[in-house]
Design a protein around this nucleic acid. Structure first.
Lengths: 230, 230
DNA sequence: GCAAAAGTGTTCGTACTACACCCATGG
DNA sequence: CCATGGGTGTAGTACGAACACTTTTGC
């Protein structure tokens, strides 16, 4: 057989979280660390009879206790033949956004430690995982501007100021509070709840809620979400 | 070894071309057709010491005689475990846009026939290749609106009416000629040449040229390409 | 001179930008 | 009563949408 192939297939999970006005990624320290205990993205080899998407979700759950229903495929890393020094491994990377505030993470079967890392304080990771995260951040930034995915990073009910802050932080831009609020509200997929935020100081603020159904309706009618900045 | 993996890695190439006011895809009929001579996308198994991107470009060249320098990664298909009935194969799909008008395609080593198929006349293909093409078309449509990639489908020098037609055809929308021209020209990355088109009928038209350098300059200064429609 | 496509300008409305003051609460 | 964030309105501008007539050529 001329084309003998000995390439492994892995999946890696980039999970973004948002808290304390900062963007975080979920990282693990591998248990069987031939790589000298580097931190790494959750992930691992795909099983023989397992779809790729099931594989990421399983690995993520096994290693971090985070159980998701869906992850979006980001990119497949297979150009650097030596990205894993032991064997040739191609990795299909997936990403997801979660509300980090009430999520129980814990090191599980296959991981020693699990931890949220601020995206600007990520250490040198195993394999090409720094590169993968870079690509994920780029995608996140792009997507944030043309799909309402920011809400996935927030609790079900959130403050407008949190939303605003999230956009400013991730996109590294300044926003005019008034115009931002006006624009988002004009879309009509946010609902004001009757709840108020636990007050830190200043005037109490109403909590808002993203109505996914209404958003889907709008999409069906040709609506196009977009947040731009000066 | 608990995790024994016997999964092959393949690449597939979606090459779009544009001629006679229609969008085409490049397909081949496989030589060693265990699949009963279905048409399929050019592609094949990745070699052990070959990057993914080299693999697609090699396969495309071997099978169609089309030599490209770059293809963009589209998506990795590995959720359907039985997408190839013989073995489990995961395919990383890449796509590219070419000027089909002066491109010599020919069946080569690994293919019986090579042919351009209009995208609305594609037969039932091998594997999940119809699905892959669907995804590629969706990506193409999206990209066309926010990146100046339409020019890749046209000859170096082209008519404004061709460009306009290309957008109308691919996006299946109507455009106002005058507004379209005004907008594209306002960007400043098109150059009028001194050449005229071979006339079919009507007033002769000047040929235009896309200036990639100028476009890159604009991008550096925060420019953002966008074509929207009513 | 007629058919066929190329080339061009104006008006109107909408949507983004910029910008500043009052409000409700806790301490 | 002061500090802290929440909540709101308006005027100017720029850009996209709608729209029709003139020009150049071949036949």
């Amino acid at each position: 057989m001329e084309n003998f192939q000995n390439i492994r297939i892995a999946v890696d999970a980039i999970v973004f979280g948002y808290k304390n006005n900062s963007l975080y990624v979920l990282l693990i320290e591998q248990k069987f660390g031939s790589e000298d205990k580097y931190w790494a993205l959750p992930g691992g080899l795909v099983k023989q009879d397992e779809s790729l998407k099931d594989a990421v979700i399983r690995e993520l759950h096994e290693e971090t206790n985070v159980k998701l229903n869906f992850m979006e495929q980001l990119y497949t890393f297979g150009d650097d033949i030596y990205r894993d020094s032991r064997n040739r491994v191609i990795s299909v990377a997936y990403f997801a956004l979660v509300d980090a505030s009430n999520l129980e993470i814990k090191a599980d079967t296959d991981a020693d430690k699990v931890q949220w890392y601020k995206i600007d304080e990520i250490p040198a990771l195993a394999f090409d995982h720094n590169l993968i995260i870079e690509k994920a951040i780029a995608r996140l930034k792009a997507k944030l501007t043309y799909e309402p995915i920011g809400f996935d990073l927030l609790p079900e009910e959130f403050l407008f100021s949190d939303l605003e802050n999230l956009y400013c932080t991730i996109l590294e831009k300044e926003i005019d509070r008034r115009n931002f609020r006006k624009k988002i509200l004009s879309y009509g997929f946010l609902e004001q709840t009757e709840h108020f935020s636990p007050i830190k100081s200043g005037r109490p603020a109403k909590l808002f809620k993203f109505n996914g159904l209404k958003y889907n309706d709008l999409i069906k009618n040709g609506f196009h979400f977009e947040i731009k900045f000066a």
